[in-house]
Nucleic acid binder design. Structure first.
Length: 351
DNA sequence: AACACTATCAACCGCGAGTTG
DNA sequence: CCAACTCGCGGTTGATAGTGT
C-alpha cells in the first residue's frame, strides 16, 4: 500500500505557473502570510495547485529579495567549499548565500560547477600522471624520498605503488566498502580520525571514533572571516535561527562530543562524485590525496598548486588546489564543526 | 532551414522528520 | 504510544532554449 497523496492529483494543475497564478499567490501571502498550512492555502486562494507546489513556487521564485542566475566568484567558491565539507546539504549551503535558494544552488552545482571541477581534474590528472611516471623511474633508480618541485613541498614524498585496477567497479556494491575505507583513510588525513570499526558500531562508539580536529587554524577564507556569525538555518525553514558567534567556532568553547556521531554521518555521506571518481578511476584517490597534499606524512605541509596551469578561480584551480592548504583545512574543519553545532543544537532543543 | 544534440532550470516526486490529536 | 498529517529536503524529470551540423 502506497503513501497517501498530499492532494487530489486529478483536480490539481501541474506544470509551469502562469503570471496570474503567481500574482494571486504572491498577493495573498504578502497580505495574509501562509497561515502555517500550505496544504490549505491553494483552496483559500482559489488556485488549482498542490500546496507543496505553492510552497515551492513561493520559496524559489516569488519570495522577495531573491537573486537569480549570475553567481559570483565568491559564491562559486563558497558553494564548492561547503559542498566539499558537508556534501549535498543544499539548504544549509543556501543559508550561507543570501538571496539564493537551495534549488538554485543545486541546479547550478549539477549543471555548471560540478562539470567545471571534474573537467579541471581530468586535465590535471593527465599532467600529474606524466609527472608521476617520471618521478617513479627516478625513485627506482635511487630509492630516496622525492620532493615534488612544483608542489613547493618540503616534506619528503614517495609516489604511490603501481596502481591496481579495481575489479568490480561501482555501481556493483561489492567494492563499496573498500572504497569507503579508502575515503575514510583520506578523510583521516584531511582532518578527522576514524576507527576501523565505526561502521560496525555506528550507534555506539562512533562518536568516540571520530575525533574532530582539536585546533582550528585562525586563518580562514576571507569570506568566513568577514562574517561575525553563521546562520546555520535556512531562512525558509520553520526553525528559528541560531546565530553562533563565529569566533566560538574557532575554539573548543562548545562541547561537541554529543554531536560527533552526526558529523560522522555527514562524512559518511561524502559527496558521491568522489565515490564515483574513485570507482571509475582507481587513481583518483591518489589524485585527491595529491590535490590536498595529504599524500605525505601529516598532510599539512603543502602550500602550492600541483598544476602548473592557471590557478585562478575562473578555472576552479584555486579550489581543486587551494593556494594555501592550511586555510583550506581550517575552513573544512570549521564547517564540520558548524554541522556538529547545528546537529547538537537540534538535540538540545534550540529550535 | 531542418534536425539533432546539449544545457538549463522550474517543477515534481518521494521520503524522513516533526507535529498534533 | 500511535496514526494521520504537514513540512522541508534532496534527487530527478521534462519542457524549452541554445548551439552545432
Amino acid at each position: 500500500m502506497g503513501r497517501a497523496p498530499c492532494c487530489d492529483k486529478a483536480n490539481v494543475k501541474k506544470g509551469p505557473w502562469s503570471p496570474e497564478e503567481d500574482a494571486k499567490l504572491k498577493e495573498y501571502i504578502e497580505q495574509h502570510g501562509t497561515g502555517g498550512n500550505w496544504i490549505a492555502l491553494p483552496q483559500k486562494i482559489g488556485l488549482k495547485r498542490c500546496g507543496k507546489s505553492c510552497r515551492l513556487r513561493w520559496l524559489n521564485y516569488l519570495r522577495p529579495n531573491l537573486k537569480h542566475g549570475g553567481f559570483s566568484e565568491e559564491e562559486d567558491h563558497m558553494i564548492c567549499s561547503l559542498y566539499m565539507s558537508i556534501g549535498s546539504r543544499w539548504s544549509i549551503i543556501a543559508a550561507q548565500l543570501p538571496g539564493r535558494t537551495d534549488n538554485d544552488i543545486k541546479n547550478y552545482w549539477n549543471t555548471k560547477l560540478k562539470k567545471k571541477l571534474l573537467g579541471k581534474q581530468r586535465k590535471e590528472h593527465q599532467a600529474r600522471r606524466a609527472s608521476y611516471l617520471k618521478q617513479d623511474s627516478m625513485k627506482k633508480s635511487n630509492s630516496i624520498p622525492l620532493v615534488i618541485a612544483d608542489h613547493g613541498m618540503q616534506t619528503p614524498y614517495w609516489p604511490p605503488e603501481p596502481l591496481m585496477p579495481i575489479s568490480t567497479p561501482y555501481p556493483n556494491q561489492g567494492n563499496r566498502h573498500n572504497d569507503h575505507a579508502s575515503l575514510r583513510k583520506l578523510l583521516i588525513k584531511l582532518g578527522g580520525k576514524f576507527s576501523d570499526d565505526y561502521q560496525q558500531e555506528p550507534n555506539n562508539d562512533a562518536k568516540n571514533n571520530l575525533q574532530l580536529p582539536i585546533e582550528c587554524s585562525s586563518t580562514t577564507y576571507q569570506q568566513f572571516n568577514d562574517q561575525k556569525s553563521i546562520n546555520l538555518f535556512s531562512s525558509s525553514s520553520s526553525m528559528s535561527s541560531l546565530d553562533i558567534p563565529y569566533s566560538k567556532l574557532l575554539t573548543n568553547e562548545y562541547n561537541i562530543e554529543g554531536a560527533s556521531m552526526h558529523v560522522l554521518q555527514g562524512l559518511n555521506g561524502f559527496p558521491v562524485e568522489f565515490d564515483e571518481m574513485i570507482c571509475s578511476n582507481p587513481e583518483s584517490l591518489d589524485e585527491l590525496e595529491c590535490h590536498y597534499g595529504v599524500g605525505m606524512d601529516n598532510g599539512v605541509s603543502s602550500s602550492g598548486p600541483i598544476s602548473t596551469e592557471s590557478t585562478t578561480w575562473d578555472d576552479m584551480g584555486s579550489f581543486i588546489n587551494p593556494p594555501n592548504i592550511t586555510n583550506y583545512e581550517a575552513l573544512q574543519q570549521e564547517v564540520i564543526q558548524e554541522c556538529a553545532l547545528f546537529d547538537q543544537s537540534r538535540y538540545l532543543g534550540f529550535q
